[in-house]
Structure formats: structure tokens, C-alpha cells
Nucleic acid binder design. Structure first.
Length: 145
DNA sequence: GCCAACGTTGGC
DNA sequence: GCCAACGTTGGC
């Protein structure tokens, strides 16, 4: 399985709102960037990822899971824009800030650090585990396989 | 609020 | 098909 990172401005769609959707999850709408869309096409049911608050907070605040694979984005007028559905899995009790990520040498190659504008991006297994630990989440509890 | 980085648009 | 102009994102 693979790991991902989803960015959202809390004023547009926050972690609290995501959690309120429960296990049903919610469409990850609004992606209008081919690279980000293409990453969503690669996602499989059960893939996990981080929920990151951009602009305000600038931190990884939660862990999510893909509950529906790629399908048309219901908010797009052009069918080429697609998205997945994700649900909240668990909080990251100690949000991992962008500053902390930048300060950690093991995370220097993260897309988040090097291409700050990409809103959906892949995360390596090792990076996922490191951030879990920094956030107070046992990687074994949220990583499969 | 500014601006760098990046993507998209449209004139040629 | 190039590239300047413009819009958006997101860190600072």
C-alpha cells in the first residue's frame, strides 16, 4: 500500500469537518491540477495519508484513508477532473508543523518541502513513519503491511 | 499583505 | 508551438 498527503486550507475544508463525516468519508473535491489528479488515480482502497492544514496552522493534523477510488469530481464542470473519497482515521495528537518537517533531515526530500504548491502528493513509507512518530502516533497502529 | 513558484491562457 | 501575461497557491 501507498501513502499520501492531502492539503487543505482549514477555512475551506478543515480536519474537524472531515472528522464529522465519519466512516462514510467525503469526496476530496476541488483539485484542478493534473499532477495532483494523476496521483489520485494511482490511489487504492485502503491507502492511507496525512491531512495537512495549509496557510493556517501549516501542520499535519490527521490520518485519513481512501474509501472510494477515482471517480468524477461532482463539483467540476469538466469531467476530466476526478477525485477520490477519504475518511478520517485518527487524530495526530501533536500536529507536526511544516517547521518541524523542514528541521528533520530524514524529511528533506518530501514533496511538501520541495514543491509547496502541489495539493495531493505521495509520501514515502519511511517519511510516513517518521511523521507519525513525531506526531505521537504509533506507526504500527496506522501503517499496514 | 507580499511575492515566488508554478500553471494556464491566448496572441502571434 | 512559443512565450508573455495573468491567476492562484501558499509560505513568510
Amino acid at each position: 500500500m501507498r501513502y499520501w498527503l492531502y492539503k487543505s486550507e482549514p477555512s475551506a475544508w478543515s480536519w474537524d469537518e472531515q472528522k464529522k463525516k465519519g466512516d462514510a468519508g467525503e469526496e476530496w473535491t476541488g483539485v484542478r491540477n493534473h499532477q495532483a489528479r494523476n496521483f489520485m488515480r494511482e490511489m487504492k482502497l485502503g491507502d492511507r495519508g496525512f491531512f495537512y492544514h495549509s496557510n493556517e496552522g501549516k501542520a499535519v493534523v490527521g490520518i485519513v484513508e481512501v474509501v472510494k477510488e477515482i471517480h468524477p469530481d461532482s463539483t467540476a464542470d469538466d469531467p476530466k477532473w476526478e477525485c477520490v473519497d477519504i475518511k478520517a482515521v485518527t487524530d495526530v495528537p501533536e500536529p507536526v508543523t511544516l517547521d518541524a518537517i523542514k528541521a528533520e533531515p530524514k524529511l528533506k526530500d518530501m514533496v511538501l518541502v520541495n514543491n509547496s504548491r502541489l495539493s495531493v502528493q505521495p509520501v514515502k513509507d519511511e517519511e510516513f513513519a517518521v511523521i507519525c512518530e513525531m506526531g505521537g502516533v504509533d506507526p504500527k497502529a496506522v501503517m499496514k503491511g
